[in-house]
Amino acid sequence: MSEVLLEHPLDGVALLRINRPEAKNALNAEVRRQLAEHMGVLGTDKSVRAIVLTGNAEAFAAGADIKDMAEIGAIELMLRNNHLLWRTIAQCPKPVIAAVNGYAWGGGCELAMHADIIVAGENASFSQPEVKVGIMPGAGGTQRLVRAVGKYKAMWLAMTAQPITGIEAGQMGLASTVVPDSDVLSAALDMAKTIARMPPLAIAQIKEVMLAGMDAPLETALMLERKAFQMLFASRDQKEGMKAFLEKRKPAYEGL
């Protein structure tokens, strides 16, 4: 059976499930490859307007597969080019929602941070424990984490390997919203359904400008925002959205 399952539970919504329950959904090479392949395809599929990424009740993803890493050398690791697979996930133009139950440790925490929105269960567990096995986060953990929670919390998490609950992740700003464990997937799918009903061009521009502007000087970021805002006035969806508002009816967005 595939180690990443693809479902289409709702109109316009794709659901990706990591499917290695025997290994707590640890991210081996095949899982990373399949995730990147799916994200690449879904990113260009016009029928997909939002993507939900999840694991199971026990684990979102409990880190990288240590068995796959323990004996390799630096050159072999470099030649694997894993960063290209992670980049494909990060650069997916569709909005990605991570639905996190259970363990999101190491690479699993980093994978969740590749998403645009994180829905966490109250008892989910986030951690960057790499230091305990003699290494450090290597898939964006030091960089995305500090941008999410700030320097002092990020340093504490990465240097102590301290796990935090979903509730604590929400308080820190690592999770977008926190819900009871049993409601995580349904909450993420409801959110995806809401986003899927929005104008796709506007959603794509919001994601692109937010991500590009985070590391740019404010004036540059504001220029990116302004140009994207202006460009959307060339879309049919802008005309439809404003006309529907004035006519007091639901808009029918085409992504054009």
Rank of each mutant, 00 (worst) to 15 (best):
S176M: 03
A90M: 03
D116C: 05
A187P: 15
S186A: 10
Y103A: 07
M172D: 13
V100M: 01
T165R: 00
D116S: 00
A188F: 04
Y103F: 09
A74Q: 15
V149I: 02
I118T: 00
A188Y: 02
K94F: 04
P180E: 09
S125E: 04
T165P: 02
V178H: 04
R144Q: 08
I97V: 15
P95M: 04
G138Q: 10
I75R: 05
I89T: 02
R147I: 14
M159H: 05
Q143H: 10
G138Y: 11
G121H: 10
V96K: 12
V184E: 05
V96R: 14
L77E: 11
N101H: 07
P95R: 10
E122Y: 02
G102A: 12
T88L: 08
C92E: 06
L77N: 11
V149W: 09
L111Y: 03
G107K: 07
M155F: 15
K151V: 13
A98F: 12
E110Y: 10
G108H: 11
K132S: 14
G121E: 09
G73S: 11
A188L: 01
T177S: 07
I89H: 02
N82A: 06
G170Q: 13
E130G: 08
G150K: 13
I97E: 12
I97R: 05
L85W: 08
A120D: 07
L85R: 01
E130F: 07
A120T: 02
R147K: 15
V96M: 10
L84M: 03
A139N: 12
N101T: 08
C92Q: 01
C109T: 08
Y103I: 12
E110M: 01
D183K: 02
G106M: 14
F126I: 11
R87D: 04
G150D: 05
A169V: 00
T160N: 11
Q162C: 06
V100E: 02
L145M: 07
W86R: 08
F126R: 05
G166M: 03
V184F: 00
M78R: 13
A188H: 03
P95H: 12
A169L: 01
E130Q: 12
W86T: 06
T165N: 01
I75D: 13
M159C: 14
M113P: 08
V149P: 06
P137R: 11
Y103N: 12
H83Y: 09
H114S: 15
W156C: 09
G108T: 06
A161F: 03
A124W: 02
A90L: 09
G140V: 05
